[in-house]
Computed example of a mutant assay.
Amino acid sequence: MPAVACLIADPDRSPLDGRLVEEAEKALRGKQHWLGEAAAAEIATEELEPGETKARLEPLLGGLAVDLAVLSPQHRRKRLLVSDMDSTIITIECIDELADFAGIKPQIAEVTRRAMNGELDFEAALRERVALLAGLPQRAIAAVIEERLRLMPGARTLVRTMRAHGACTALVSGGFTAFTRHVQRLCGFDVEQANELEIADDRLTGRLIGEVHGSAAKLATLCSLRDRLGLADAETMAVGDGANDLPMIRAAGLGVAYHAHPRVRAQAPVRIDHGDLTALLYLQGYRRDEFVTG
């Protein structure tokens, strides 16, 4: 069965070495093709199974800051992207930053970390953290957006490039709509979904409106959009960093753990530990000159 091995690096911190790519080409008896100078190359092989392909390349990588993914050449360019938000599309965990304004960030951040690593029940942990924010002025939400919310490198390029090539893009979060709606506008996502904080008298009540949108809701969104668009599983991609992202990551044609928590990295089909979000374009075979930036 033919396979494509993608080697991806951060060109600013640890450029992809041409000699490494040549060694990988020889090991696979394949053909190299550069997707982005110093950032990404792929090697196609007709002779090796994916498992053997990976086994031959891993010893070459050693401790190098290079991401490796072995993929099927079929349906490389996905027609649906479903992405987590916090610590995936943006650099922060919004609930932790709200907690900072309430003076309890260390307490809440530790619960967030454990929940994202799958050590705690997501819904119970979320309700517990939201309850601790009771009384926080609503203006803290705007302050987090204005002062702390930053897009992950490559986020806008990822979304705009996929949309320019006909893909549907969805932002799904276990966080809050006040932030997903802002990020949707920044990046151009077609769809957004998150939890809604209850607010009364310009202050957070410590409760959510409606049911918690967690892992089941993320998976349901992936499946619903896939079916609505008439897509095969192989035409879908999901990306996230937390344990509540694992069901959709496993269900997608290309499931990616992005700079993820240890348990997520261990269970995801593909992991990106070093590259930025444009790595998801390289995984699909996009060349750097095809990216839609700005």
Rank of each mutant, 00 (worst) to 15 (best):
D233C: 12
V82M: 10
A38K: 14
T221G: 02
D190I: 07
R228C: 13
P15W: 10
L68S: 12
Q284N: 06
R288I: 13
E49H: 13
A44V: 12
A217E: 14
E211K: 09
D233K: 15
G206L: 07
R207D: 11
E147F: 00
K31I: 11
D100H: 11
G175C: 00
A167T: 11
R207T: 14
A24E: 08
F176T: 01
S14P: 06
I90E: 13
V82Q: 05
A155W: 04
L254N: 01
G18P: 09
E22R: 15
Q284K: 01
N117H: 06
G118K: 05
K26Q: 14
A65P: 00
L133W: 01
A134C: 05
L20P: 13
H261Q: 15
A24V: 15
V130C: 05
E58T: 15
R76H: 10
A65N: 06
D227Y: 07
Q32P: 15
H165I: 08
G118S: 00
A115E: 07
H261T: 13
I43H: 01
A134M: 07
N195I: 12
R163W: 02
R288V: 13
P269M: 08
I141F: 02
Y258S: 08
P106C: 09
G118Y: 10
P153Q: 01
V172A: 13
C223M: 12
Y286A: 04
L60Y: 05
A216M: 10
L80F: 00
L222W: 00
P137F: 02
C187E: 06
L126S: 07
L28P: 04
P137W: 08
P50E: 09
